[in-house]
Design a protein around this nucleic acid. Structure first.
Lengths: 231, 231
DNA sequence: TGACATTGGTGACGAATTGTTACTAATTCG
DNA sequence: CGAATTAGTAACAATTCGTCACCAATGTCA
């Protein structure tokens, strides 16, 4: 940083190869799952993330929607970029640049095509190093933003019980939450509204169904949080 | 979304042009400022963000460091991606894809080269639409992550007073904070440690200098926050 | 039919955190 | 010297949070 000589930059674009790599996440039996596709014979790894290049005139999230639709039959309504990579790590299509995108899909939506399968986030098979990085980033981003973005609601059907919702939060955060506290905080947030439907799920009292319906509330936030944790 | 036919994807990379666009942010007189460079004669807008294509074998943040170094003479130690764009909006070099990167620079570091200037975030001159989007995203990202990432410390020199730090938080958050609450929260966070130096800044009592020195503290966080605000 | 297990839902209380007021401390200015 | 200005903190009130205890509504099974 010591007074480096000022080199005038003559900026110019550069031709490279690019890929959109999609981490489709969905809550499966008690764990978040990622959708992988079987790689062609001869590839270094047997599985990979769904990916493709954006087509002409197509935005990145649009491309992610197309790719997901092709593999899952349903297209999630929520995407979030988790970082763009341009490093030495290997990509299955040898793209120079990879745009990582997380796609959130409710539990019941769509079904994987023949060569695709859900894998619990915690026990993935071997995938290309760059895909590994993208999956890890997607998990980190989702965990980090869960309380600032309506991520959890995108992993649930349009109506859900509060226990469902709490379950998703517990999946994302990786820890148990206290029922009464969770509900009180949710109440105060005006993020959901009750429907007049109830769901009976076998044993136990039936639960009321809610829907995501955030009320306008201007950000009159309080002091600083310093929620920074050094691992 | 209605049962779209499953189109088998034959993924393939695609050649495109790419640019790294850097939003260098620094606290200037009572406002966050962005570093812009004068565009060549004949360009649609007279100013633009510093940008260039990543060179061979160079990572994206590395490219951002090089670009910033060339324009500011000093290279910030902190970069954060704020999103990758691939849409119709115009880029000064007509890149297909733009990777937006925020670079945080302490107030005194470096000096703009001849054709570069600081502009307060609130009153920018006309720049290319894509650059406008990237600046807005950078501002949003920085505001959103300020309490989860040590962003504020990257806008300050290695040692600083607590009033300096509070000032940066107020800049980033765009609202005033209460002194006593701020300091109590900071204390509880173990993010800074006092040095044995004091700084006398003209009138008033001299202030103790602190440095950023996060102590390890495992994330034993509490309930959910639902800090989601719908504008 | 009537315990009992199971899941949903809530009131209430003490503990912890946060917002605020008000004060003390150390310096410059006139 | 006193007034003005900035730094720093103790202490109190208001609010929020974690927890416990309980009630409600259903299915199971003797």
């Amino acid at each position: 940083m010591r007074d480096r000589p000022v080199v005038p930059v003559k900026p110019a674009v550069r031709r490279t190869t690019i890929a959109v790599d999609v981490v489709v996440l969905s809550p499966r039996v008690d764990a978040l799952a990622v959708l992988l596709i079987r790689a062609p014979i001869g590839a270094r790894e047997r599985w990979s993330l769904p990916w493709d290049a954006p087509q002409g005139g197509e935005g990145l999230e649009e491309a992610a929607a197309r790719i997901t639709g092709a593999v899952l039959g349903a297209s999630p309504a929520f995407f979030e970029q988790v970082g763009t990579l341009c490093d030495g790590r290997r990509h299955p299509g040898d793209a120079d640049v990879s745009v990582g995108i997380a796609a959130l899909s409710p539990a019941g939506d769509g079904a994987p095509v023949e060569d695709a399968e859900w894998f619990p986030l915690a026990s993935l098979p071997a995938i290309a190093p760059r895909h590994r990085t993208i999956v890890d980033r997607a998990a980190a981003v989702v965990r980090q933003r869960v309380d600032q973005s309506p991520l959890a609601f995108r992993l649930l059907p349009p109506t859900f019980t509060l226990s469902d919702l709490q379950g998703v939060y517990e999946l994302l955060l990786g820890r148990r939450l206290h029922k009464a506290s969770f509900r009180r905080a949710l109440q105060a947030s005006y993020l959901v509204e009750p429907t007049d439907e109830w769901r009976s799920e076998g044993r136990g009292r039936p639960a009321q169904l809610f829907r995501y319906a955030p009320k306008k509330r201007r950000g009159a936030r309080r002091g600083v949080r310093f929620d920074l944790f050094t691992e």
